[in-house]
Each structure stands twice: as C-alpha cells, then as structure tokens.
Design a protein around this nucleic acid. Structure first.
Ligand SMILES: [Mn+2]
Ligand SMILES: [Mn+2]
Ligand SMILES: [Mn+2]
Ligand SMILES: [Mn+2]
Lengths: 160, 160
DNA sequence: GCTAGAATATAGCATATGCTATATCAAGCA
DNA sequence: TGCTTGATATAGCATATGCTATATTCTAGC
C-alpha cells in the first residue's frame, strides 16, 4: 500500500460518491481491441490502395503507393515484403505488385467498409472533405455490428 | 520505366476507363492525418483515464491505470514519464499521478469527445456494448466538424 | 522501530513503423 | 548494342510502444 492520511480521506470520500467507472475488464478489452485494430489498419489500407491502383491504372507501383500514402518508398518496400510473407500480395522483383485471392478478398471487404463509413458520414450531414479525411481513420475501428447500422442508415436516408 | 507490352496495354486500357481515384495529395493528407491521430490517441486515453480515476476514486495509481488499459505496469510508468515531460501530469515518486492544468484541460476535452461519440452511436441505433467498444478507437479520428454534426444529431434525437 | 508485502522504478529486450542514403536493376532509346 | 534514367532493393538508423525480470521504496501493522 502507501498513501497519506489526506489522500486516504480523499479516496474514501470519492469512493463513496463514485463508482461511475465501467468494469475494469470491459474497459481493458476496449483498449485491447483498439490496439489490435491499430495493428491491422496499415495492412487494410495497403491492400485497399493496391486494389484501387490496379483497378484504376492497371498496375500498382511502389512509387505511386508511397505518394498516395504520403510515405517514402523504402517504407512501402518493407511493408510489401511483410504483405508477401502474409500471403496477401505477390511481387516480381523490380516489377509491380499483385494481390493474391486472399489479398483481393481483404481489399474488397476493406473497400466496402470504407465506402459505407464515408457514405454514412455524408448521410448524417458531415461535409465531404471532413467525411473523406475522418473516414480514413474511423473505418478501422468500426465493428461489423456498427457497420450494419451505418449501412441501414444510408439506405434509409436514400429513400425518404 | 519498366514494364512489358501486355502490362503497358493493360495500363493504357485501364487509364482510359479509370480516373476514379482521388487526388494524390488529398489522399496522402488523409493518411498523414490518420497517422498523426494515432500518435496522439495514447496520450488522450491516458489523461482521460487518469481524470476519471481521480474523479471516481480520489487517486490515479499505476496499477489501476495498467489494469484498465490492459497493459503491464512498466508500460504505464514509461508513458507517465513522457506525459510528465510534456507537462500534462506531475508525479511524486512512489506516489500518485496528478494532472496539470493543461492535462486537466486535455482530459476534459477528450472526455467530452468520447461521450459525444458514444452517445451518437447509441442514438443512431448501435447496441450499447459495440458502441462502447468502437468508441474507444473511433473517437481519435473524429474531427471537430464531424463531432459538431454528431452532437447536433444526439440533441435532435433527444427531443422528437 | 522493524518488517512484509504492495507499488513503483529501472534494465534489457522485441516488434512495428518510419526515415535517409545508396546500390542495383530493367526498359526505352540513341 | 549499350547508356541513361527511373524504379526498386537494401543498409543503417530513429522513435514509439509493448513485454519480462528485477531492484527499490513506501506504508501498514506488529
Ligand atoms: Mn480505407
Ligand atoms: Mn484507412
Ligand atoms: Mn476516450
Ligand atoms: Mn480511446
């Protein structure tokens, strides 16, 4: 233990008044989930962007990926190596990047989620610029349950 | 340069059909903002949690912070050192953690934002458990503009 | 006052993500 | 056919965030 009499009095006082905090384990689980999402969001952004570049221009090059992510080319090279190890993309040295079936699947799901979140923000009244900016981060922390609610809201808003 | 005739043809073909992608700089800015938010979200979560612990129990102890964040105690000790350097908290060795005026201000704003986001998710129809879980991550990527829209939605939903 | 036990502090390590600088390679073109 | 040049690969480094193991310190209670 270890606290002075004044601290103890304060603690006791507040403890009587308090108890507003959520359950410790529930709260810890929220933070763990947020940290887990943070670890996978880079992967999601990469495969989604690669799919978009291929769809739009027929190829995904490191320089273009780097420019669109706002990072340096070696940063992209390192991440592509990781994505290759994880079986999401294939690389031919000095050639372009291609998505595996698994990578394409993840890209499709990421793109869909991204689109729903952005459409939802627009539907609820957020201006297009902030909707676009905020979605890039928000999308990675939206559970399937919440995504379903967003999708329904967008659909309802479409036909009033 | 460097690509085969087939690739070149594909690229040209897709380029004609394509052009759906957003502006490179705009997109890069979205990703930069998301990365910036990721860097500050830990700080926000810490000061908000410290404020809650003090409000609820009269003190904020490393062990309790660690338990609620779901991390080990040395992880908390290291972060508190950083928060102290940044002028957000004060520490007395082997004693509790206290918020500076600046830290308390950040905590208040973080708590307010957290509350608005969670209330909004509930108002739009997300179940309480997923609202609580998702908010922990989403809150850090909501701009002031979007937050204002959320707050207005909650207010409107309150009086139908 | 001593001491046991809880809390905090510190050391050392691992992983993820970013950077700059530089070497290597491949295509297109002279 | 080579050469130029743009793209990719690699090396080396920095920072942030986590961990385990262990030393240190404080306070409560005897
Ligand atoms: Mn996305
Ligand atoms: Mn994103
Ligand atoms: Mn919060
Ligand atoms: Mn949070």
């Amino acid at each position: 233990m270890g606290r002075g009499a004044a601290d103890k009095a304060n603690a006791a006082e507040a403890a009587e008044a308090g108890g507003q905090l959520a359950d410790v384990e529930s709260q810890a689980e929220s933070f763990r989930r947020a940290r887990r999402a943070r670890r996978s969001e880079l992967v999601d952004d990469y495969v989604e962007l690669i799919a978009d570049l291929i769809a739009d221009g027929g190829e995904a090059r490191q320089v273009d990926i780097a420019a669109r992510l706002g990072v340096a080319q070696p940063t992209v090279a390192k991440m592509l190596k990781r994505l290759t190890e994880e079986g999401l993309v294939t690389q031919r040295p000095y050639r372009g990047v291609f998505l595996t079936a698994e990578g394409q699947d993840l890209a499709d799901r990421s793109r869909r989620r991204h689109h729903i979140v952005e459409s939802f923000l627009l539907a609820v009244g957020v201006d297009p610029e902030h909707a676009r900016l905020d979605t890039e981060g928000i999308e990675h922390h939206v559970s399937d349950a919440t995504l379903a609610v967003f999708a329904r809201f967008v659909k309802e808003a479409g036909k009033p």
